[in-house]
């Protein structure tokens, strides 16, 4: 039986991160893209907690705490923007929102 080391957690985290990243790059629905961002964030928090345990330092957990807060704020604002846009322009997806084009 293999021993369960921190590397397992980290590989799992990188898998989740990759799935999230590919999803972000492929999907066009802004809501789903947001969820993919959440996936990537969670993968990152998982590595933080893993390293906190591996290196015996509570700082990793503190970082996760802040990531959580920022993610909550980000979701609130991001969803607010999406609602505001879709209320005006029905059926828009991420590629339609290109007003910042140079």
């Amino acid at each position: 039986m293999l021993e369960l080391t921190e590397t397992w957690y980290l590989v799992l985290a990188s898998l989740i991160f990759t799935i999230g990243a590919v999803g972000l790059l492929v999907r066009r629905n802004p809501l789903v893209m947001f969820m993919c961002v959440e996936l990537m964030l969670n993968a990152t928090t998982l590595t933080f907690v893993t390293f906190s345990k591996a290196l015996n330092d509570v700082g990793g957990q503190a970082s996760v705490f802040f990531v959580l807060v920022v993610a909550a704020a980000e979701v609130v604002v991001g969803l607010g923007i999406i609602v505001a846009i879709l209320r005006r322009q029905d059926n828009a997806d991420a590629d339609d929102l290109s007003l910042m084009r140079g």
Binding site: L24, L25, A94, D95, S98, L99, M100, G102
Partner: peptide
């Protein structure tokens, strides 16, 4: 180089990914 600023988020994200 203006086309680089396409305003399409996925393209930007792809740039991020390549950078990563």
């Amino acid at each position: 180089i203006r086309p680089a600023q396409s305003g399409i988020i996925r393209t930007y994200a792809l740039g991020f990914g390549v950078g990563a």
